[in-house]
Structures are given as C-alpha cells and as structure tokens.
Amino acid sequence: MPEKSREYAVNAVLALGLLLVPLWALWAGEPFTITLATRIAILALAGVGLNIALGLGGMVSFGHAAYFGIGAYVAGILAQHAFLNTPVLGLPGSNQMLTIWPVAMLISGVMATAIGALSLRTSGIFFIMITLAFAQMVFYFAISWPAYGGEDGLPIYVRNQFPGLNTMRPWDLFLVAFGVLMVGLAFSALLRGSRFGAALMAIRQNPERAAAVGINPYGVQLTAFAISGMITGLAGALMADLTRFTSPSMMAWPMSGELIVIIILGGTGRLFGPVAGAAILVGFEVTFGGMTEHWKLWLGLVLLGAVLFARGGLIGLIAGKERHG
C-alpha cells in the first residue's frame, strides 16, 4: 500500500527532524531552539495521550487540560516538598523525575477514571460540555486552594533530576522529553494494533455492532480514557519542569482547545499526528508571534480554513486516507 509507506516516511521524517534540529542547535549554540523542540516533544506527548481518547476512541474530550495540569501540579508539589524538606500526606516529596512521573500518571489516571465514568454516561454534545465543565472544576479548585500558590502558580526552583543527566542543560532535558515521547509513541502504536485498540476503534465506528460481538463499550472506553489522561498527565509533569513553573493556566480551558488543535492539525487518529500538530502550532506561534501580537487571529483563521477545507490534517494531506488492513 503506497499510502501506508508514505505515512511511515512522514513519521520517520518527523521523528528524525525533531531529533536533528535541536542537535544542530546544540552544535550552533542556540539553546532557545532546543527549548522549542523540547516544548514540541512535550506537547506532542500530551497530544499522544488525547489522541487515544479522541482519535482512536472518538471521545471528544474538551477537558484534557485538567490531566495536563494535574501532572504539572504533581511535579510542582512534590518538588516543593522536597525543596522545603516537608512531608506531603505523610510521604516525603521528591525531586526525581522517575519518582514524580508515576505519581503524576497515577493521580491523573484516577481523575480521568472518575471524570470519564461520569462523562461516558452520555455522548455527543453532552460529552464535550461535561468534560469541559469538569476540567473547569479542577481549574477553579487549583486556583482557590491556598496551599500551592493559588492563582499565582507554583515555581519549581531547581529542575527535577533524571539519573545520569544534568536536566538544567537544555539538551539533556530535550533528550528526556524526546525519549519519553518515543516511548509514548511506541506504546500508542502497540495499543492501536492490539486487541484493545481494535475494540476501541470498532466502538468509535459502530458501538452497537461492537456490543453485538460481546465487547462492552463502556468498559473499553473508560479504560482508554484513563490511559489517555495518564499520558497527558505525564506530559504535564514534563512541561512543569521545562518551564520550571506550575501555572493554573496549564489546566485552563484554552489548553484543552490547544490539545485538540494539535491533534486535528496533525491528523486525527494518526500515530504521529500529534507530533506534526505540535510542531505546526509551536512553529506558527514562534513565526507569527514575532511579527504581530495578534498572531492568534491568524491562527484562528488557519484553523477555520483547516476545518472547512482540509480535513485529515497534515498527515492526511500527505499520506491520504487512513486504512486498517
């Protein structure tokens, strides 16, 4: 199938490009470019998470900022307790990424399970509104809970550590983010090829048929939603370390919109769609943000054009329609 191999080629170019551009920047001494690439990798990872719910499962969550933000807050809160050497819920804080990540994934996963369990009682427009509303609840809770910065957010004074690397160096942090993204993509690839992935994609297309062959749509969708929230939460923890700041805006509604934009610009449901989408979005912001303070106007117009005239996203434009053998 030439379309399939064209998609593999696009994926390879995206992965190599994301690695080689910052490598060039390292050589040329341009740390800002490395940081941009790190941001793309982290946003892409958040998109990989959302893509499992939205792309594979057809669950249009407009509330994934909640899990992104929860991941970020876990990183910020654990780091603060480690910094001040105080316990949190009777346990010590941590400044080790390898400790922070599982906790971030666990707590975002628990929240995604709770919110998903309620939201999946409905579908369609209801589902979109409810996921948005619950995410807003988490946001309001974060800004009104006084212990961790409230509306001001929570700084991370010293970036959390990863064994064998110096995360304060941009290139080292990029390697961490890139590595996690690649693991996330590999997991996502396996998932979509697995029995679970088949069931999930089948439910998106025809839930009644899936049930008639013995698949419980609710259980499969809820599991996918939880996994999706966990991966997006992991991305949030990384983002907090990149910006060294946990900001309530990371869980505000525009972030949820941005994550959807990333997926659609890249190509909904495509394995590397979020990578392409994150690169387009960050590239757009850097390019046009430097020219005009109203760059979001142009972003909005481009998005409108993409919805109305270019369905299928970038990978769809290059590799054609997706096929499942």
């Binding site: 939205l54 959807i260 659609i264 979001k296 972003l299 909005g300 998005l303 409108l304 919805v307």
Partner: peptide
C-alpha cells in the same frame, strides 16, 4: 469535533 474546532477558532 469539527464544530468544536471551528467554534474554538472563532473564539480566537
């Protein structure tokens, strides 16, 4: 999904 994205774009 298209409606969400297009109206999100309209907000911007």
């Amino acid at each position: 999904l298209d409606q969400v994205l297009a109206t999100f774009a309209l907000i911007l």
